[in-house]
Design a protein around this nucleic acid. Structure first.
Lengths: 346, 346
DNA sequence: TTGTAAGCGTTATCAT
DNA sequence: ATGATAACGCTTACAA
């Protein structure tokens, strides 16, 4: 037998509307009544039904986090927990719950738009850019439904946050140049991948600023995994002294790990003869020998920012869209530390 | 202007109760009427409000996944995504949503029991054993609220799943013995840690079965991180030939990584002079040189099983509690491969 | 300051 | 096979 607002009203000798006002701490209720009603609520161990509240208030106080669980994006897996904690850290205190949803849940029949948005199960949505489409964005805008995209999404009006991958490319390249490296190769990733394009842009830009330019011979694109790192280094070692790189910029930890391993096997001293820097600080960077200079992304911060932006859109759904690029952090470690040594390679 | 069941009723010239029956595909409605009503619904782009359905049905069709976000358990972080996908893979098709919750959300004032359970926001709960207490378990049982614990939880009546850590300890030890290793040290972890106790039990048991026993001199407990792996190996290398171990069983990948690194620096060949096996296959095991023999835990399967068990409890809340130990998988790699060589160490 | 009554959008129970 | 009507448990004008 569960107790309702009605029961409290009876027990406290007031109308149920009065109880409701007490629950919501309305200023038009006397302190005395509040005390009494609260006492009764506590006494009877009463908790309002969110099912009813939700219907009456026409708001679920629930947010959606939408991802595509069918593809295991290398990206989401390790970072998901942090992103989620980041989101909750700002939405939790505001009493919002967070519902996880995969686009393809419940069969292709039930699009998430129906399942979550139109059915009013959620008040707002955070979605990865990997699953966002212009259609969806337009539809959401049309419905004036609050949403935030995680990851750049410039192709349709939307509010999004991302880390600045281009700037990241600049930072790493800049660092390598400062350390005296001059022939820097970018390894891992392929033309057409959003992440690669941005990062490579930053790299190329910074090189040109320094009066250098990407060496065509260094062009070894491919998947961003360990074996690609190995292959890249093997290939680059074949080059003649003049064009052989003295530093590597890696797409991620796996590529860097493979590169480091192959370099070691080839007897090339790192960082002495070959500097290695990489995007991401997880999972290997702090652990390798030598530890890798890397570009750290605060995924907790990313989630928190997405949460902030979503709350703002919920408050003011008609405000204009905005987007934000967060700055990554360069973590300098031994793999690029050539300070002191003039470091001529060849 | 959002359209309700009433609007559909009008447009289709039927009572709203009829529309409701069509929505729920009641058999007492003529095929003809169904067609017509469905057409209208599609036409008007109608989606039932889950807020209303939920109140009428007295069920939220929502499950809770409860964790403690304030402590970053090494455990949850990398595995969270898989666990979650596992849960969704079984609950999603059954039309349940999954709500993530931290125990401490919304201030200490609002206990999750109130926030989620008593308020009826969720129909069932999956919780990590790290946050479960006997109090909570009793309370949930008292409320006849369906819940499943992830990780062993024998101290109070509950339904739980876990991987069999004791068996894991047996499997790894057994494997090392089979490879001809005889002086096996267990490194990483500390007395009192649930995980350590179980794993160590399996290890010790298998040794004794083989007529051996844990060498007291091998006792180097401590945190389960890389530096502990390094320290342990350094310490063990100090021992005289007789008691120096010929194989290591590591609490996790970080310990193993540290051990491997130190062994290499000391010029000890792995697996020739020292075999190394470890719990967990993430994040290093497949990538090290040599790759590590490890005990893999299918976290997706863990989530899926928890989901299954929860659905069962929701269907039959009064069935008796049960618990399940899943078997881990041994992945043999080079770090323990001494086949062919008699492998005497000293 | 408190009470009355009409929603909120469904489902469920009866009649018909 | 369909329709009225009462729940479901809370909020919110509007009255008193």
């Amino acid at each position: 037998m569960k107790i309702t607002i009605q029961d409290i009203a009876h027990a406290a000798q007031v109308a149920k509307s009065t109880v409701s006002k007490v629950i919501n701490d309305s200023p038009r209720i006397s302190e005395e009544t509040k005390q009494r009603v609260r006492a009764v609520m506590k006494e009877m161990n009463y908790t309002p039904s969110s099912l009813a509240t939700t219907l009456a208030k026409q708001s679920s106080f629930n947010l959606g986090l939408l991802i595509d669980m069918s593809k295991e994006t290398e990206y989401m897996n390790p970072f998901f927990y942090n992103i989620m904690v980041g989101i909750k850290s700002v939405t939790g205190p505001l009493k919002y719950e967070l519902t996880l949803s995969s686009i393809h849940d419940g069969g292709p029949e039930t699009h998430f738009l129906k399942r979550l948005v139109l059915s009013r199960r959620i008040d707002g949505l955070i979605a990865n850019n990997a699953i966002m489409t212009d259609d969806i964005a337009h539809k959401l805008n049309e419905l004036r439904f609050p949403f935030v995209v995680m990851g750049e999404y410039p192709s349709a009006p939307s509010t999004w946050v991302d880390y600045d991958n281009r700037e990241g490319g600049c930072m790493l390249t800049e660092h390598l140049l400062t350390q005296g490296y001059r022939k820097i190769a970018f390894i891992g990733g392929e033309r057409g991948e959003r992440l690669f394009e941005k990062r490579f842009q930053g790299y190329a830009h910074t090189l040109r600023q320094a009066g250098l330019q990407p060496n065509e011979a260094h062009n070894v694109s491919g998947p961003s995994d360990e074996s690609q790192g190995c292959r890249s280094v093997s290939a680059l070692l074949e080059l003649d002294c003049a064009s052989r790189p003295d530093a590597l910029l890696c797409m991620n930890n796996y590529v860097a790990f493979g590169a480091l391993k192959t370099a070691r096997e080839a007897g090339i001293p790192v960082p002495g003869q070959l500097g290695i820097a990489t995007f991401d600080d997880y999972p290997f960077s702090p652990h390798t020998s030598p530890p890798l200079t890397s570009l750290h992304i605060d995924t907790l911060q990313l989630g928190a920012t997405a949460g902030d932006m979503l709350m703002e859109r919920i408050r003011t759904p008609d405000s204009s869209h905005r987007s934000l690029l967060l700055s990554p952090e360069l973590i300098v470690r031994e793999s690029t530390n050539r300070s002191g040594s003039p470091g001529r390679t060849g």
